[in-house]
Design a protein around this nucleic acid. Structure first.
Lengths: 108, 108
DNA sequence: TATAACCATAACCGTACGGTTATGGTTCGT
DNA sequence: ACGAACCATAACCGTACGGTTATGGTTATA
């Protein structure tokens, strides 16, 4: 059975813009809404609403500092999705994939 | 950058009914539309449409046999999602999770 | 052969979603 | 102190989505 919380995570990451924001936060670290707006290519209110959705899924945390709000990714909130994948078919496959990736990296 | 194909997978699994169908197919194996309809708790056309979406994402395959269509899960289609998780934050964490699960199972 | 079962598609409906502009509240810079 | 910058919320809009009933085509059954 899918955990209740997993629903928010799946829904939040279904939108490509939200995934892009999350990816950007993961790669570049903490970002202000303004910086994310320039990156996302949509309006600032749109970004704010996306961040609200990501926040509901606990995928981001925010820290207010003066007039700007800094957001950072919270990767451990992906756990429900990972657990779901472990249950439904991707358990061993992803282990092999990781091993492949790891070996490929160590090769270079 | 997220692969083009990943979009379909994320969108398809965003809906809880579709996840439930996929879970059912993974657990119980091949199922007819009729059986899935009884399980899903929605109308038969709704199930057919869900199966179409899952099919677009390559998450299921179908085999027609007489008047009934048998669907089965295609777990390797989860790969784009798994790869995305590997890239964005869940790489090491899931390794630990798997190890935990594995150890827990071996314990019993 | 007539009828029922199985499934997909069409047509339709309400609502949720992603986007926009407008606005207001804080906070920084001048 | 005043104007600008930053952000969130409100109000609104078009469309995509998940659901339904209706229907038709194919296949099994009586």
């Amino acid at each position: 059975m899918t955990p209740v919380n997993a629903n928010h995570v799946f829904r939040a990451l279904a939108d490509p813009t939200r995934r892009a924001i999350f990816e950007e936060l993961t790669r570049q670290g903490e970002q202000t809404v303004h910086a994310l707006t320039r990156y996302a290519g949509v309006s600032q209110p749109a970004v704010s609403k996306h961040l609200t959705v990501l926040n509901r899924a606990k995928l981001v945390r925010h820290r207010r500092e003066g007039r700007e709000t800094h957001y950072r990714a919270q990767p451990n909130a992906l756990a429900p999705m990972v657990n779901w994948l472990n249950l439904y078919g991707a358990f061993w496959r992803e282990r092999f994939d990781q091993l492949e990736n790891l070996l490929e990296r160590m090769d270079k």
